[in-house]
Design a protein around this nucleic acid. Structure first.
Lengths: 345, 345
DNA sequence: TTGTATGCGTTATCAT
DNA sequence: ATGATAACGCATACAA
């Protein structure tokens, strides 16, 4: 059903119908009501193609994400964002990337400046440098630029959506898998590998969930937990790591981040048979999952997170649909027997 | 870059450019080459909206799937297909469902007749009634109607794509999870619940993969496997099931289908603590996963399968993109700690 | 308050 | 072999 046909039905011109549809006023009450009635009756849906053609708008979305080396975690959201940019290009969606150094607040602040100068139609941001990210949210609100947050959330940020993970539940899940693997007993090591003070919120929540799970289960009271950190800013951190693993010799290890491959490396080299659970099916972890050195990876689809963030803007800006506020992605359990079907979804 | 602009560059009218783009001939060799060169130079991409508007085509896709009661497996693919039909409606994609009784070949044959009479632009089919499905593929090929297969595959069918699961690997994965849960030892029961002779190909492959995994692992040679069937066509099959479970009293049970909830029911009722692994996060299994009665569910995203099948036709028919031939979906591992994020993806 | 005309980019048809 | 033009449905500027 087209506007023209509706106009004919209502005995008015299509201009009048259009004014009613867009609520531009200048229509008498009676005709407005009549047209509204017909519109509802025929369940009028504007022709997507005609609408897109005449509007011919394009939208610039900026993606403010940490830079990365190949194989690292932040490559994944970037991939998803790029793929979505490609798929949605025909609808006028353009994505401009701004990469910052996650260990350097100043670099984030500089990139924020560049983003704001661009006056984009939407911003995708990652709250890795939390304090500055919160400030950015406030500025975007006053500038009336819609934004969405991926990875981890900022409460009451005013974003159109959050797309990410439930980090606490991720930790609980890890605890379930690891404790099952060690037969519900033994010594378990929670090993955090950090390289700055900024983005350990997620690590912290995962550890919390992990411990919570073990403490709440009556049958797992025999498990002994040891919590240790390794700081990548120390020059000898790799030796530290090795010393810890050999010295502690636990039955299971949980690394609440994508850096589990560093541990896997040591286990392989030293031929240590220790159950190992970590996060994120990044390239660096892939071989260790395939070899069974890492027993389980918990993955929250970072690629999909990036993709959905862009797609959400498409829905929000182009099709004017409402978008979900909070979008928690599934916590995928990945192991030697199913990892091969998890790449490039 | 529009056709008009390209025409100006080439000093011809836009009609000529159009003839070159669509290779309709009636263009001199020199001008054709010149235009082709410019087209490549500017990387011309037709405006999606204008194209859609002027073509104004609509496509009818038929979905030939088994009927179901609420909460059963086949509800999932149907849901995905419906969702895709809704999302892609604006692009002229219309889906017509034909539900058949999976225990009655005749009903399938009747529905096939109806499908063919409709002369659809595409067919989505499920090879549950394998023999008849193979015949249908042949007829669709001669009628030049593109079709795609979901769930389980038919070799060399000539489909534009297959979207489904790797059933053997699914069985292997189940074996890994269940054997880990029983501590790598004990008695394990493979329990198939059937109600016809048609669709046990998937069950068979899963069982095969399951046994294969156990036999190939040196450390799992202590595990004793018992294989049993329950036939739902017997009036007293529920009692049979109960007798088996109580009589065998195994350490772990693998039900290679979505019907694992029937076993879970008995375990709950009889308060039996037996490790249980099955397939498909259908509504009927949901409460048992939440309660921890079912330890692991392996799910191959049946909803996504349906969605992708329709989306593939959109790509194939509307945007004329190439589509993937074989599309194996990830084997998701679902358990008490992560099931809540797997519904309505 | 209402109606009309123009254009968006592509396709397809009709003249030349 | 080439060019001109109408049509798709919608949005909008402008005329009445």
């Amino acid at each position: 059903m087209t506007i023209k046909e509706i106009a004919k039905r209502a005995n008015v011109s299509l201009g009048t119908v259009d004014r009613v549809i867009h609520d531009r006023g200048k229509v008498s009450k009676e005709t407005k009501e009549k047209i509204l009635r017909i519109l509802k009756e025929v369940d009028y849906k504007p022709n997507f193609y005609a609408r897109g053609l005449v509007l011919n708008k394009s939208y610039v979305i900026t993606a403010l994400v940490p830079d990365f080396d190949a194989g690292e975690y932040w490559e994944m959201p970037s991939r998803g964002i790029k793929q979505a940019a490609k798929d949605l290009n025909q609808f006028g969606i353009k994505v401009v990337f701004f990469y910052f150094d996650q260990n350097d607040s100043e670099s984030f602040i500089r990139k924020v400046q560049e983003v704001l100068e661009l006056k984009p139609d939407g911003v995708i941001l990652t709250p890795v440098i939390n304090f500055e990210a919160v400030k950015l949210c406030a500025r975007l609100r006053t500038m009336a630029i819609p934004f969405s947050i991926i990875d981890s959330n900022i409460q009451n940020s005013g974003s159109i959506s959050f797309i990410g993970q439930d980090a606490i539940q991720s930790g609980r899940l890890a605890a379930k898998l690891l404790s099952t693997s060690t037969g519900g007993k033994g010594k378990i090591l929670i090993l955090s590998i950090k390289n700055n003070e900024n983005h350990n919120k997620t690590l912290q929540k995962r550890s919390e969930g992990f411990k919570d799970f073990l403490s709440q289960s009556d049958s797992l009271q025999d498990i002994k937990i040891v919590e240790l950190n390794v700081d990548q800013r120390e020059s000898n951190w790799k030796e530290c790591l090795e010393d810890i693993l050999v010295g502690q010799n636990p039955d299971g290890i949980y690394v609440p981040s994508s850096k589990v491959h560093f541990v896997a490396e040591v286990l392989m080299k030293r031929k240590l048979k220790i159950k190992l659970v970590g996060n994120d099916l990044i390239d660096n972890n892939l071989d260790f999952i395939a070899a069974g050195i890492i027993d389980y990876i918990i993955d929250q689809r970072p690629e999909t997170q990036g993709y959905l963030a862009v797609e959400n803007f498409y829905k929000y800006l182009v099709t004017k649909q409402r978008v979900e506020n909070d979008y928690y992605l599934p916590l995928d359990i990945i192991t030697k027997e199913n990892y091969m079907y998890y790449r490039s979804q």
